[in-house]
Structures are given as C-alpha cells and as structure tokens.
C-alpha cells in the first residue's frame, strides 16, 4: 500500500519559516520527502533553517509579507506548489481600552491581510497545482474569549471564516483549504510576548496532555499536506491537548 503520508514529489511553501512552528514544519515536510521553499523576513535565520532541512532542492526567499511589492516579487520567483503552510504571525496582548487603529492594522496586516494576498497572487498566477493543500495556522484563541486577546483572536477568527470560503471557491480545482487551531504551543513567539511566561506555564495544569510543542502541531500539518487528507476541506481543526474538554 502507498504511504499516504509521504510528501515525496511535492513542493511546499512555508511562511514564517525562520523560527518557531514554521521552522519545525519545514523540517518535518522535508523529512517526508517534500521540496520546501521557505519565506520569512530574517535572512540569517532562514539560512539556518535551510541548512537543517533533509534532502535537496530546498530554497528560501526573504520577504516582508506585509509589503505588497515584495509579495509580488516572491510570486514572480516561485514555481508550482502542491502545498502552502501559512505560519507567519504576531501576537500582542492588549486590553480593549488600549486598542488603537494602528494596533488593529498591524495585527491584521500580518496575521490576515498579507496571508490572503499571498494566496490570491499565487492563485492568479496559477501557481497552485490541482490537488494542492493550503494550511492556515489559526489558534484556539479564535474560539475562546481570553482576556487581552481581542486583536489576535479576531485576526485568527477572520482566518477561520476565510478558510471556509476559500475551500468552497477552490474545490473545483481540488485545492483543499483548512486551518489548524492549536492551544498553547511552546515557541519563541510565546516567550517574546508582553505576557509573563509564568502565565502560560500555569496554564499547563488545564491541558490534560500538557502544553503543545511545534512538532505536535507539525504532525497535523503533515497530514493536511499529504494525500491522506484528500477528502478534507474547509475545516478548522482544534488541537489543544484536551484543553477545551474542561
């Protein structure tokens, strides 16, 4: 029987690939035989990620996804894709009283607008193959009401809605679109927020299977990219170590 989870012969684009979850997903996809293209802003870190990938033919592009002309450049350089994993994202905990237009714009620009525009540009240039899989990294925050997460949660909620419409519009090309909504995952983004790391550590007690690692989410990413999930589209998979059972 064929290995349904193999990514052999597939070309996968990973955004936010220089650190955190994106880096691990790129490594895992390469280990399954994919040719991986990495996108992120930091060239040094992208090189480190590139060197850590198994196999050959991988490449990277430095790109600030919030800059429209840079996105256009990327789309002009990249070749046909069989999968896209959209991990680029920021987080900022702001109580509602301190929200400003500027903060809303920054959050949505990175977490939502730029991801949609990237997908739009790739589709317009017919760079996404039939049977390809697009995977957005959303968040369980989009379905909860955690204090201080208004901007982050709503930017991820917008992704969840986009996933369903994209899935519907692209089904005739057999392009599948899904999101994964992880609970708390230990990454650099987490330790880089304005919230004390202790706050997250204390949450661990509420996770029956403990806090997640990028590799835990990576398993689901591989499944979504592979032909094992060929009948799955328009879904937002909650992956939270049992947190929402409470």
């Amino acid at each position: 029987m064929d290995n349904l989870l193999s990514l052999q012969g597939k070309h996968i684009l990973v955004t936010g690939a220089s650190s955190g979850m994106g880096k691990v997903f790129a490594q895992m996809a390469a280990a399954q035989g994919a040719r991986v293209s990495l996108l992120a802003r930091n060239e040094e870190r992208l090189k480190v990620t590139l060197e850590s990938l198994e196999g050959e033919g991988h490449d990277f592009c430095t790109c600030d996804l919030t800059e429209d002309d840079q996105l256009t450049d990327i789309v002009n350089k990249i070749d046909q894709l069989d999968g896209i994993v959209l991990c680029a994202g920021i987080n900022d905990f702001v109580p509602v009283k301190f929200i400003k237009q500027e903060k809303i714009s920054k959050m949505f620009q990175t977490n939502y607008f730029s991801q949609l525009i990237l997908v739009q540009k790739l589709l317009k240039k017919k760079l996404i193959n039939k049977g390809a899989s697009i995977v957005f990294i959303s968040s369980i925050s989009s379905m909860l009401g955690v204090q201080g997460t208004l901007l982050y949660a709503s930017s991820k909620g917008a992704i969840n809605s986009a996933v369903r419409v994209l899935a519907s519009e692209l089904a005739n090309q057999r392009i599948r679109v899904n999101a994964i909504c992880p609970g708390i995952v230990k990454t650099e983004m987490l330790s880089g927020t304005n919230v004390d790391e202790d706050v997250f550590t204390k949450q661990e007690a509420l996770y029956p299977l403990g806090l997640g690692t990028p590799k835990d989410v990576g398993g689901a990413v591989l499944f979504h990219l592979s032909d094992a999930s060929r009948w799955l589209t328009g879904q937002c998979m909650i992956m939270d170590g049992g947190f929402t059972l409470n």
Partner: peptide, 19 residues
Amino acid sequence: SMLALATMAMVSEEYDVEL
C-alpha cells in the same frame, strides 16, 4: 494579570515606553 497588561499599555501610551 489584566491590570498588568493595562498598566503596560498605559505606560506605552503615555510615555512611549514598552515595558
């Protein structure tokens, strides 16, 4: 912890300092 966030946001808004 919410008031901690609000305090940090106040300092950012009033003094342009990111604690």
